[in-house]
């Protein structure tokens, strides 16, 4: 917000009844949205959790003392202390460091799933909703079939076929996650296609692809993003579950689910080994859920607490 007037009046500028420029109007909308969002303490907590996760992932080399991979057998299975905040695991690796490095893997997984799922869902939904007719029928039948699939079991079967690993786990999750986005995008596209600005674009001779990409799809994005935020927790839990079963990330990778899986045998005497990564999963997926709830309330006042 480089062009904002000096401090005393920026709030007045942001809350002016009649905005003077489209830029000001946009800033005002963002600010009012932020006000609504930040007045919800739970949503703000979620936002802070996710912010911490992202910062931890970016600055992992600065925060941690080790790379979380090199074994140090002299210090194995130490309880939490001032030196090792979360204790050490069976190979003497600092669990705190591993969790911080694991934040990168978690973000990598959810990011990759989002990159696959959102475009696929948008394309299918927008095309189906805008075109209507037989295209709509066929695409939505396919979507419904995927919507009805049991997610976890199918992801298991996919990973079984493709072999364990993060990328395959991501692919398996994405294949079973894209369908709700297509439904949402279609519902939006159905209402948008009758609006006048689409008619205007069409009379100006815009091609079908242009209308879909630059006029319809962006309008569907908001609800798709809200849904994505709400789904993030589920994605993280599924990925961690696959890791726990030994089908996702493979040791020594500091993926949280895999850490719980290898730490499982120590739970009776060294409870911290599997407990700490579990808490990390819990807190991060809670963060995404809180953030998603808050975003939905701000962006979509109709769908409160669906």
């Amino acid at each position: 917000m480089a062009s904002s007037p000096p401090v005393p009046s920026w709030r007045a500028w942001l809350l002016l009844d009649v905005p003077k420029s489209s830029f000001q109007a946009r800033c005002q909308r963002a600010y009012i949205g932020w006000l609504a969002f930040s007045s919800n303490p739970l949503a703000l907590t979620g936002f802070l959790i996710i912010l911490t996760l992202v910062l931890a992932a970016i600055f992992a080399p600065l925060i941690t003392a080790s790379d979380g991979l090199a074994p140090d057998l002299r210090n194995r299975l130490l309880p939490p202390s001032g030196e090792h905040w979360f204790g050490t695991d069976q190979l003497g690796r600092d669990i705190f460091d591993r969790i911080i490095w694991g934040a990168r893997i978690t973000l990598y997984i959810v990011g990759l799933v989002a990159i696959i799922v959102v475009p696929v869902g948008l394309v299918v939904g927008v095309v189906a909703g805008y075109m209507g007719g037989i295209v709509d029928q066929v695409l939505m039948r396919i979507t419904d079939i995927f919507l009805a699939f049991p997610r976890l079991i199918l992801a298991l079967a996919f990973v079984a076929a493709l072999g364990p690993g993060i990328e395959n786990a991501v692919l398996a999750i994405a294949l079973t996650t894209w369908s709700p986005y297509a439904r949402i995008a279609r519902a939006e596209a159905l209402t948008i296609r009758r609006s006048e600005y689409i008619m205007a674009a069409r009379t100006q001779g815009a091609s079908l692809a242009r209308i879909l990409v630059s006029h319809v799809a962006p309008m569907c994005l908001a609800s798709v993003i809200v849904r994505l935020t709400l789904d993030m927790a589920g994605i993280i839990l599924t990925a961690a579950g696959l890791g726990f079963l030994g089908l996702g990330a493979q040791p020594p990778s500091p993926e949280w689910g895999a850490m719980i899986s290898t730490g499982r045998q120590f739970i009776l005497d060294q409870w911290w080994v599997p407990t700490m990564p579990g808490l990390a999963i819990l807190i991060v997926s809670l963060g995404f859920n809180l953030l998603g709830d808050g975003l939905r309330d701000v962006l979509d006042p109709r769908g409160q607490e669906r």
Binding site: G241, I260, I267, L268, T275, G278, S285, L286
Partner: peptide, 22 residues
């Protein structure tokens, strides 16, 4: 509700076994 949504089920099971069984 939120915590139930965010809880890794396998982890909760392990911790519950630790506390209530062991």
């Amino acid at each position: 509700g939120l915590i139930g949504y965010s809880m890794p089920v396998f982890w909760l099971g392990m911790v519950a076994l630790l506390v209530f069984y062991a």
